[in-house]
């Protein structure tokens, strides 16, 4: 059990209300009243789920994130989506298909599961790498070729995720193991 803050509930209410108003398209009192009733129902349904901590040391995702860095991070991720799409398209369209698949596993020391989720999703969205599994601290990543996992093993992307949460400079990943062949 963890308790969630009023701030968190307020953010959820405002985003749900925004969603409702845009979807509805009617701004009279009746429809906004329906909206308030619906959002109340949703929040009652999700009350105990939100109180439940799925992981140990779970933190509120919003309060601990540095907002300015998070916005720049979002733009960085959009740019990475572009690069990764173009990269994979190039690989597919070359007749020789220059791929060299490998699996790498590493341990990442990150504050809380939300940071792990961010790192996992950004690994999936960056060119040529795909998060296959996250087990406690152990990440398993499938990489399409040798150049693609350079950003992970030289620790630049995990440090970017860590910098969203705190200012400390420390190595994030350890125990990197790369598997090139299953012979």
């Amino acid at each position: 059990m963890k308790s969630y803050s009023i701030y968190h509930s307020f953010v959820l209410f405002v985003s749900l209300m925004f969603f409702w108003l845009v979807m509805s398209g009617y701004f009279d009192a009746l429809h906004i009243g329906f909206g308030v009733i619906s959002i109340g129902t949703v929040m009652v349904f999700f009350h105990s789920i939100r109180r439940h901590a799925f992981f140990e040391e779970e933190k509120s995702p919003l309060k601990s994130v540095n907002p300015i860095r998070f916005i720049s991070y979002v733009f960085w991720v959009i740019w990475e989506i572009f690069k990764s799409g173009i990269f994979v398209a190039k690989v597919i369209l070359k007749p020789s298909m220059p791929i060299e698949p490998s699996i790498l596993t590493f341990k990442a020391d990150l504050p809380g599961p939300y940071a792990k989720m961010l790192l996992g999703n950004s690994i999936t969205l960056t060119p040529g790498t795909l998060t296959v599994d996250i087990e406690d601290d152990l990440f398993t990543v499938h990489a399409l070729s040798r150049e693609t996992y350079a950003g992970i093993i030289d620790d630049s992307m995990p440090k970017k995720v860590l910098s969203l949460y705190s200012d400390e400079k420390r190595p994030v990943i350890s125990d990197v193991k790369i598997t090139h062949t299953n012979l």
Partner: peptide, 29 residues
């Protein structure tokens, strides 16, 4: 819960309220 991947669990918890509100929207409209 240690065996669950945080990407799936937290992603589901993020998206699920919006899907429920969308269902209520479909009923009311």
């Amino acid at each position: 819960t240690g065996s669950e991947s945080p990407i799936i669990v937290l992603g589901a918890r993020l998206l699920s309220p919006f899907i429920m509100l969308f269902g209520l929207y479909v009923i009311f409209h």
